[in-house]
Design a protein around this nucleic acid. Sequence first.
DNA 1: GCATCATATAGAAAAATGTCAATATATTTT
DNA 2: AAAATATATTGACATTTTTCTATATGATGC
Lengths: 93, 93
Amino acid sequence: MDERRTAAIFKAFCDENRIKIIKLLRSGEKCACKLLEEINVTQPTLSHHMKILCDAGIVVGRKEGKWTHYSISKKGVEQAKECLAQLTTLDAE
Amino acid sequence: MDERRTAAIFKAFCDENRIKIIKLLRSGEKCACKLLEEINVTQPTLSHHMKILCDAGIVVGRKEGKWTHYSISKKGVEQAKECLAQLTTLDAE
DNA sequence: GCATCATATAGAAAAATGTCAATATATTTT
DNA sequence: AAAATATATTGACATTTTTCTATATGATGC
């Protein structure tokens, strides 16, 4: 995995508002309007953060009518964990 | 773990130069001057990144005479892994 | 003590990121 | 079709981060 992609993945976790969003999604899928009620930013700012979280692969959005439902991506989380493990494992000597 | 601390931990992994530094340390402890040879930044910039990595707990510095030897902190890495796991595990229903 | 080497700190400039107001798009409802 | 609702995009501004130059600190060797 290249450095640029690794950085993009972990950008999901290096902003306090995004961490709050991820924590909210631990209890299950939520639509953007529900998330908006719970974090103290405007709607365009939330939309911006959701894009970064989706680009990182940590969150997925599911469109249904006029709503977008967001949830934590099990697959994305696994990739992040693997990436972290690979990055921090010492080389065999 | 609070959001501010979580963000500080993952800041270690969201800059391309810091990821390069971590990768260099996978082969074992290295002094700052050795790292400086391998990444394309000035000495004060390297020093700045090393501070962020140390604050995140991912890297530790060991002073020996005029050198500082940096290495990956097994403990810090474990904490980061736990933090990531906790953050991304769905709540029990 | 003075010169040298390795690293850290201070301060400024440049680049990236987070934020908001305004507006666009797409869907549903009336 | 028009109004209302949910979300995305645009563009501007503020803050934060990254980077540099210059300088300071601290250790070693003469």
